[in-house]
């Protein structure tokens, strides 16, 4: 539960910390987890452009994994990967 008083909140409900929702971890919603087989991956970045939750991590133009803190496990990346390098695994099952 929130505890800030009215007078300590910025006027009129404005939010002055841009991008603060990163602190809200939607990864907890996930039932299935994407996993990538980098041996197959061609770094085409298709998964990245289609991820609704900015959860495909790209570094230096290479696909480097998933942001499990926020990935909701929708499976779009796996469905769209042209070389089927991504598989969806039941969350909690190794």
């Amino acid at each position: 539960m929130a505890n800030e008083g009215s007078s300590s909140l910025p006027a009129g409900g404005m939010i002055i910390e841009a991008g603060s929702s990163k602190k809200y971890k939607t990864g907890e919603w996930r039932a299935q987890r994407p996993e990538v087989d980098k041996a197959k991956c061609t770094d085409c970045l298709t998964c990245w452009i289609y991820c609704p939750d900015n959860s495909v991590m790209v570094k230096d133009e290479k696909m480097v994994g998933f942001k499990y803190s926020h990935c909701k496990g929708c499976g779009i990346c796996a469905n769209q990967c042209p070389v089927k390098a991504i598989t969806m695994k039941e969350e909690g099952v190794e």
Binding site: A2, S7, L9, G12, G13, M14, I15, A18
Partner: peptide, 24 residues
């Protein structure tokens, strides 16, 4: 340079405090 979000959704945990600002 200072991106501000105006007019967000506020749930019961914040709505009342934001409304009270008008009273104050």
């Amino acid at each position: 340079k200072q991106p501000t979000t105006y007019g967000p959704l506020a749930m019961p945990d914040y709505y009342y405090e934001l409304k009270y600002q008008v009273q104050a």
